[in-house]
């Protein structure tokens, strides 16, 4: 498989994923997008292995490793800090070990964690994952530059 064919396939898979996400929201079935996402990633990994003109040597492997390690080093601090905030919100309410004290008749108990709040955490987590991707791309570019990926010499003319 040519590299351009792989990129085309990845684009098509991404578009299908967006469609399935929309469908999943429409029919209120989260499992639909979850399964589709895992299958999509699996498909892309399998396709990537079949790309013929992709040369991966020790230098490119080292760049990838270093970028991944630095991303993890930064990301876990941000992720842990935000998770600590989430834990404070969660622990400031009943933990669900026993039913919360009922509120006034006809109203929800005032100290329960509302569902939209959980939804907001999900969106925050997705934003964090996007941050992780940006961090990785940034570090990847930094190390690629450091180890001469974009260097030119007289042979390239």
């Amino acid at each position: 498989m040519k590299r351009n064919t792989f990129y085309l396939l990845a684009g098509i898979v991404a578009l299908i994923e967006v469609g399935i996400f929309w469908l999943s929201v429409k029919v209120e079935e989260p499992i639909l997008i979850q399964v589709a996402f895992i299958l999509g990633v699996f498909l892309i990994y399998m396709a990537r292995r079949r790309v013929e003109d992709r040369i991966e040597d020790e230098r490119t492997a080292m760049i990838t490793q270093k970028a991944a390690l630095r991303t993890l080093e930064v990301f876990w601090v941000v992720f842990f800090a935000i998770s600590l905030g989430s834990a404070v919100v969660a622990f400031s309410r009943p933990l669900g070990l026993r039913p919360p004290h009922p509120g006034p008749p006809g109203t929800a108990a005032p100290d329960m964690l509302e569902f939209p709040v959980i939804g907001n955490f999900a969106i925050l987590q997705m934003a964090l994952l996007c941050l992780m991707i940006f961090l990785y791309v940034g570090f990847r570019m930094y190390y690629a530059r450091k180890y001469g990926d974009w260097d030119t010499d007289e042979e390239q003319d």
Binding site: I55, D57, E58, R59, T60, G148, D151
Partner: peptide, 14 residues
């Protein structure tokens, strides 16, 4: 290996 790897070694970057 890639051409960039040879170039990086020659230039002492890797």
């Amino acid at each position: 290996v890639t051409r960039q790897t040879i170039l990086a070694i020659e230039k002492g970057k890797y």
